[in-house]
């Protein structure tokens, strides 16, 4: 069983991974659920690998932030959500969209800037939305999504819906002032919002050790009386268990909750980041010992819930889906030139 990665100061102030500690609370997943988690995480992984490759080929431009390594977080949280719930995140958003059930082709076509993209080719990697799926973006400005997510929760409450808004943000974003302004209002008005800090230890090249003196991000709600919990975000069962309990509280009207998911990105911040601020050994160790997909694969095999062949078959199906998405994204036409001026404002009949 995986232990949670912890941030203790190692040599040269680098975070030292995982001490053996108390086993985290784990969700008891059925075989079908475990296979579902495996498939969903693998879909995100393969999608991101493909996106990285297409970026290299010049099919995708601008900034492209991959979610590889963090898959367990969205897959575990999303499994707790109900029809009508909302989610919102930053620019590292492809995984959130796939987990929300948005078509991989429409996401990939947005990355290639095509008319069939989820934002009609006008938003790109960092700015994607699908309100139909409860996905409110895809925001390029660090932490902007935190008050916005709080506002979506406000709207759920205003309409007396039982729905909640899951608001994801990074460890770097956690230092922005507007996060605390949002926390204060969320508590003041008991808004149905689950804050999920995806603590992947780095904000671009800045380790959490160098960005704050208050590193227990799950305690960031303390002074606002928002309860918090630290979770092994590399283990989908730990994520599922913690998110399930937190969401029950939020949904029952008890107000906001904060989960710190301790996770790790296997790739650089964006495609052009050589990631010299962390050691190869650290990355290697996280990949070898904490890979969220590897962990579930091992569980499935060890418990004889699936054979190598079953998993290979899933791998083939996922690959086929991603290949189809990529082909669609490349074959689709660019937006019409007239689209340059559409959707700036909506015309109002006078």
């Amino acid at each position: 069983m995986a232990t949670r990665p912890q941030h203790t100061r190692g040599k040269k102030g680098r975070p030292k991974p995982a001490r053996k500690g108390a086993a985290p609370e784990l969700y008891k997943a059925s075989k079908a659920q475990l296979i579902k988690f495996y498939r969903e995480m693998l879909t995100i992984r393969r999608f991101e690998e493909k996106a990285g490759q297409m970026y290299g080929q010049g099919e995708i431009g601008g900034f492209c932030h991959l979610y590889i390594g963090q898959e367990a977080v969205v897959v575990g949280v999303q499994d707790c959500l109900l029809e009508g719930d909302s989610i919102i995140t930053g620019y590292r958003d492809h995984g959130h969209m796939l987990a929300a059930g948005i078509d991989a082709g429409a996401v990939m076509a947005e990355l290639t800037g095509r008319a069939s993209g989820i934002s009609s080719g006008k938003g790109g990697s960092m700015h994607m939305f699908s309100t139909r799926d409860g996905f409110y973006g895809g925001h390029g400005i660090v932490a902007a999504q935190v008050p916005i997510g709080t506002g979506i929760a406000f709207a759920h409450r205003y309409r007396r819906q039982d729905n909640i808004c899951v608001t994801y943000f990074g460890d770097g974003a956690a230092n922005q002032g507007q996060v605390f302004e949002a926390f204060n209002m969320a508590r003041l008005w008991d808004l149905p919002v689950l804050y999920v800090v995806e603590n992947n230890r780095y904000a671009m090249g800045t380790s959490v050790l160098r960005s704050t003196g208050s590193r227990e991000l799950w305690k960031r709600g303390d002074s606002f009386k928002i309860p918090g919990k630290q979770v092994d975000g590399m283990n989908v069962l730990a994520v599922r268990a913690a998110a399930g309990a937190a969401i029950d509280q939020v949904r029952s009207g008890k107000g906001p909750y904060l989960l710190e998911m301790q996770t790790y990105r296997f790739r650089g911040h964006s495609m052009s980041d050589p990631a010299l601020y962390r050691s190869k050994e650290e990355v290697q160790q996280m990949k070898a010992e904490h890979d969220p997909i590897g962990q579930v694969k091992k569980l499935l095999l060890d418990n004889k819930m699936a054979t190598e062949d079953d998993l290979k078959e899933i791998g083939r199906e996922v690959k086929a889906e991603i290949t189809r998405a990529a082909e669609f994204a490349i074959a689709s036409p660019e937006p019409e030139a007239s689209e340059l001026f559409s959707d700036v404002l909506v015309e109002v009949a006078s």
């Binding site: 431009g61 006008k122 937006p335």
Partner: peptide, 16 residues
């Protein structure tokens, strides 16, 4: 620049 937020698509960005 054109009177629009900057689009992502390569062709639209070129036009803008």
């Amino acid at each position: 620049g054109d009177d629009v937020p900057m689009p992502y698509a390569a062709n639209l960005e070129r036009l803008a």
